[in-house]
Amino acid sequence: MSADTEKYLVFSVAEEKYAVEVVRVEEVIEAYGITPVPRTPSYLLGIINLRGRIVPVLCVRRRFGFEAAVTTTDTRLVVLQVCLGEELVSLGAVLDAVHGVVDISPSAIEKRPALGNSGDQHIAVTSIAKLENELLLVLDADRLLTREYLDDSYEHLRRQAGG
């Protein structure tokens, strides 16, 4: 592979394959030891202890509007570095499976307009990588959870609780 390729982590969520830049990935661990936090949006699964650090965990399936899946031996927790507002935070993302790392040349990546509403997967997928024998949805880690979406979710919860 030529030097200007980028490394991507390939994973799957709800039968679809995604890729996310490896530079955003802090680590890949078992989805184990998650403590739920009550009164939060359903896509937030809780927190984990990552070597003394408290890291929030999100369920990518629920975030993308799918039903949550049963945890299997393939289920993984990928700790990503994401921008939230003006801050860089660690966010754990629970995925169905992680397949490995691939090199993708920028020429193989095609931009596509962000489609759909903020509640489904398309909002966080801004491009598609065309590999030899498959297509990968390229995840923009910063759009996995935005300040606005988070605020809306809390607002929604409050209205539900109030009404």
């Binding site: 030891g33 403590t35 936090v37 009550p38 009164r39 939060t40 937030l44 809780g46 927190i47 984990i48 202890n49 003394g52 650090r53 408290i54 890291v55 929030p56 939230l84 507002g85 801050e87 935070v89 966010l91 959870l145 988070l150 605020d151 809390y154």
Partner: peptide
Amino acid sequence: KSLGKIYERVEGISGAIILGDGKPAL
């Protein structure tokens, strides 16, 4: 420990602790 930005709007929880078995509690 702080719950961080993502949970700052949670009501009724002010932080997290790490239990003896390494699991967080609220």
